[in-house]
Design a protein around this nucleic acid. Structure first.
Lengths: 149, 149
DNA sequence: ATAATCCCCAGTAAATTACTCGGGTATTAA
DNA sequence: TTAATACCCGAGTAATTTACTGGGGATTAT
């Protein structure tokens, strides 16, 4: 039940993007440098974020990435789901396409447990916006994670 | 962010145990048969449940397992943590010993996100008891999962 | 034209998962 | 006393997933 590096690095990276997007596009290279992440791995993550319409990109020199919407309209849930797929504890309560559904759909006792866990997680992550993380960052003079454990 | 088969099979199995423990011990063999699980794999799961003092065992013929306490005193959280370890989304907010702590302990922006997810999950699973699952089972004429997807 | 930048796909080493297997040891019915 | 039943325990392993790396191509400012 752990998030993968996709979710962890990806949230760090999009927050870094948000923090540096005041003056135009931000390059992957600069995000990778600041956050200590591999640029080529970030490419994969940003491809997923772009596919989910959370970021936009400009190609060519002076190009880079920017948020597709204002930070208060992007939730942590949007980001994590784009990177990790459905944050359900089992496939049988996942809303992903192609996730396995068990033959027992409606009358399974443990299924209701998994549904409650799923809803608990989504309730948390859908109610935190990037703007709130930005505010936290400035308010508490916070940093982001130093190491990538 | 998926539960492993340990958590999924284990919760099924201990619920089966609870449902059949009216008249004394329940053998692993019978649980494995009813739930379509491997007996030797179940041995591993029950070793973990026993180590966490959730079940007791009696050896020899007519032996088997029983709950260590009444079902209303055993939560889904107890079971899942015994089998999966801490249900935290990252090691940095896990309460497991030996889980990696990031150098940045207090001032990390994303860490607060992981803490909220962790607390959301635990709040759900600590407030569902085995007794409630037993009640669900009888009230709705429920079954357990047929297949083990 | 050149170089900076995003884009895309394929491959792969490491880690984790999901088991199986083979031998124990305790208990008890006969 | 013996044999059957069941829990106990640790090692091994195939399959899957994760966490990347690398190579080449498209786009565009200068």
């Amino acid at each position: 039940m752990k998030l993968s590096t996709k979710g962890r690095y990806g949230l760090k990276a999009i927050l870094d993007l948000a923090l540096h997007s005041a003056e135009g596009q931000v390059t992957l290279y600069s995000i990778a440098e600041r956050q200590g992440l591999s640029e080529s791995y970030l490419e994969q993550l940003f491809a997923a974020l772009k596919k989910a319409d959370l970021i936009k990109s400009v190609r060519g020199p002076q190009g880079g990435y920017m948020l597709a919407d204002s930070p208060e309209n992007i939730s942590v849930g949007d980001v994590l789901r784009a990177l990790e797929g459905s944050l359900a504890p089992t496939d049988c309560v996942s809303d992903d396409r192609y996730a396995g559904q068990c033959g027992n759909s409606e009358r399974c006792v443990t299924r209701s447990v998994w549904e409650k866990i799923r809803d608990g997680i989504n309730n948390v992550i859908d109610n935190i916006t990037l703007q709130e993380l930005i505010d936290d960052y400035y308010r508490n003079n916070n940093t982001m994670m130093i190491d990538n454990t």
